[in-house]
Amino acid sequence: MDRITLGNEEFEGRNNAYVLADDETDELALVDTGVATDDIRTDLRDGLAERGYEFADVDDIVLTHFHVDHAGLAGEIQREGGATVYVHEADAPLIEQDEAAVAALEDRREELLEEWGLPEEPRDELRSFLEGAAHIEGPPAKPTPIEDGTVLEVGGRTLETVHAPGHAAGLCCFEIEEGASTDGTASEAFVGDTVLPVYTPNVGGADVRVDRPLEKYAETLRSFIDREYDRVWPGHRDPIEDPSERAGTILEHHRERTGNVLDVLEEHGPADAWTVSAHLFGDLEGIHIVHGPGEAYAHLDHLRHEGVLEYDDGEYRLLERPTDLEALV
């Protein structure tokens, strides 16, 4: 797979932009674009130039989700050559930077910061970080919304959309039809941040729009495992050669974290998400000020829905510790 490796100091490191080119039809597509910073813009322009292309030559952009480290340059590329930008319908308003959608996201974040019990100082630090990072978002794009099952013909490839919510409401994998196994199932896919080779994708804080984020992500991982891909191409770092095993490892990580959350409540008594986060992750800065308590919240909220915890006056209280975490997550 032809990929351009992009630097990324803002988030989880080394983004990938995948280049799909059809020499016969001269069609060119990108899967994800990286953040809209000068360094990354140069990385992407230089990578395309090495292949004989420029931004204006891009016909299609397929976005795995709305996060700026995957979509930041989409609007700029579209402006230069009129590329069609595909993204799941749940994320399309944010790619378009629709004022109502952006305001709803920000309002929801503020509601949750209050609910999670964040003191004013880290809230202010987070707001300052987000305001300071606004420039990496890039100009808006005019997206073409897609949904689960949408088939795209781009860059000489056939990609089938597989909705994979959890880390983000509109996160999608794109199965590569040309890599189909003998039984007709896709053997390879672009997966964005559904699974990553090093980090465990954040749930709860990465997209505050997602209701019951841990439940949704666990369902996504189980479905991903069942698809039995031979290889997948993530949004960060190197390809994953054992995708189902990696997804299973991430699922087990969340079971262990569930146990860690229960340990905190058992040892320290009722607590809000910020307090649980402090026990799990210690001091936080930058984007992790929302990712940390968001992750704690995802687990606390899931345990509440499963009847393990009681939520009252901003705090979660352990009712009875379960013995089978696998049955919960």
Rank of each mutant, 00 (worst) to 15 (best):
T5R: 12
T5Y: 07
G7L: 04
G7E: 06
E10V: 00
E10T: 00
E10Y: 01
N16E: 14
L28K: 08
V31E: 11
V31R: 06
D32F: 07
A36D: 12
D38F: 00
D39V: 05
G47V: 03
G47F: 04
A49Q: 09
E50T: 10
E54H: 10
E54V: 09
A56W: 11
D57G: 12
D60P: 05
V62A: 10
V62Y: 03
L63M: 09
T64W: 02
D69S: 12
L73G: 01
L73W: 00
I77R: 06
I77C: 12
Q78C: 07
G81L: 05
L94C: 07
L94F: 14
E106L: 14
E110D: 15
E114Y: 03
W116G: 05
L118Q: 12
P119H: 06
E120D: 15
E120K: 09
R127P: 01
S128T: 06
G132V: 00
A134I: 00
H135V: 03
K142Q: 14
K142N: 14
P145G: 10
D148K: 08
T150Y: 01
V151Q: 11
V151H: 04
E153C: 00
G155N: 08
L159V: 01
E160M: 13
V162I: 15
V162C: 09
A164F: 06
P165Q: 01
G166N: 01
G166L: 02
A169F: 01
F174G: 00
E178R: 03
D183T: 12
E188V: 03
G192D: 07
D193F: 01
P197F: 11
P197H: 06
P197L: 11
N202G: 08
A206M: 04
A206L: 05
V208T: 13
R209F: 07
R209W: 03
V210H: 05
R212G: 02
R212I: 00
Y217V: 02
R222Q: 14
S223H: 11
F224D: 08
R227I: 06
E228V: 02
Y229Q: 09
R231E: 12
R231H: 02
V232P: 07
W233F: 15
G235A: 06
H236R: 13
R237K: 15
I240F: 01
P243N: 03
P243E: 01
P243Y: 03
R246T: 05
A247N: 11
I250V: 14
R255V: 08
G259C: 10
G259Y: 11
L265F: 07
L265D: 07
L265E: 08
H268P: 05
A271E: 03
A273T: 12
T275R: 14
T275I: 03
V276W: 04
V276H: 04
H279C: 13
E285M: 00
I287P: 00
I289R: 13
I289H: 02
E295D: 14
E295K: 12
A296F: 14
Y297M: 04
A298M: 11
L300M: 13
D301E: 15
D301S: 15
H305C: 05
G307D: 10
E310D: 13
E310K: 04
L318A: 07
E320L: 03
P322F: 13
D324V: 05
D324N: 15
E326F: 05
A327D: 15
